[in-house]
Design a protein around this nucleic acid. Structure first.
Lengths: 196, 196
DNA sequence: ACCGTTACATACTCGGCCGTATGGTTGTCG
DNA sequence: CGACAACCATACGGCCGAGTATGTAACGGT
């Protein structure tokens, strides 16, 4: 079917531009998504771009929606397959902690919350994730109200961690120390095994 | 002495421009700090600006350093005067939770971490605050390593909260619910009173 | 009263980036 | 093999914001 070779002189599709935009966002932030720059990056010129998209805004919109679509999904589904509800959250934390790539886009979008286009996207994504955490905490035995607060706290810690660590480069934490930090998080934020 | 009337046609000083820049940052973000816009806001023109500063970058630099200088200071000092170490952190949390103004600049700067000038400033400020938290946790009875992790977690939660709540406007949390959230944070992150 | 310094106005240049216009090339299908 | 559509290049117009050049008004000291 559609062979997806992305190198050499093949004609581009709208999706190629969207992927390119997302790559640029991950590397240099939303502000770096300029038409001519992206065109050079893809080995073509503006003329091509304005055939696929009416405006730069349209590209950003499409790219963001594409990212929102293709986000999480697998991870959360796998977590829900774990039978013991109390083992889900620790597993989720460890899983999330050891993938770096998906976070780069999210972190870049956090830095770009002045651009009005990204706000609704980030709102929806964050809200869904907090809802998911709330469910997990509830099923792990917390009262509904407590679960909601704990979910917010957890997700805030996640967001803040992203900012502090690879946006700011706070003293390059070592790999072992990072693992210890994750375990500390689990111990602090996760309901203890013996509890009700 | 120096009458500080900021209205009407008085001559401006460099500090006035810096304060104006900080106000603009708090309201519309770092990107909104444009020379001509700021000049209009102050009732003058560019001509004035380029007398006080060599470049726009210089203004930003000065404004950021001014903010870094005039930051926290009183709050942290007051906290340290509380005799019982275990009562300090809860008090700090409640204090911080009920001031909104100082956070606006910090939140705006979080959204502006693509601008290379703000990164070192934010790094220093964040690092100092984490160090402070680490000391507080240690004095409250935590092991040094645990205290460091807990401090990072706490500060990450703070940063994340800012992003999620008045950068994104996640479902406008009510005042009462917010207080409950803060108490939940204290209960979760603060060493229990009976413990060692 | 004068004069230099401080503070500001006005009018320009210049570069970056968006968007448009138009013409050329590469496919593919009857 | 011609024709129509998909895809791209080149060239241009225009806005916006930074920075420069230069002239001018207020002030403070002597």
């Amino acid at each position: 079917m559609n062979d997806g070779a992305k190198n050499e002189r093949v004609r581009l599709s709208a999706e190629d531009w969207e992927d390119g935009a997302l790559a640029l966002i991950a590397e240099q932030g939303v502000g770096a998504v300029a038409v001519e720059a992206l065109a050079r990056r893809l080995g073509v010129t503006k003329g091509s771009f304005y055939w696929h998209f009416r405006t730069r805004e349209a590209l950003l919109q499409a790219a963001l929606e594409r990212w929102e679509e293709y986000g999480e999904r697998e991870v959360l589904a796998e977590i829900e397959r774990i039978p013991d509800p109390r083992k889900r959250l620790p597993e989720l934390f460890r899983r999330v902690a050891h993938e770096m790539q998906p976070h780069r886009v999210y972190a870049a979008l956090l830095k770009a919350l002045d651009h009005p286009q990204v706000i609704p996207v980030m709102s929806r994504v964050s809200q869904r994730r907090i809802d998911f955490l709330t469910r997990m905490y509830t099923e792990a035995g917390l009262e509904p109200v407590v679960a909601l607060h704990r979910a917010r706290l957890t997700y805030a810690a996640y967001v803040g961690f992203l900012q502090l660590n690879f946006t700011l480069g706070l003293p390059r934490i070592s790999h072992d120390e990072f693992d210890a930090y994750v375990e500390h998080m689990i111990a602090t934020l996760t309901p203890a095994k013996s509890n009700d």
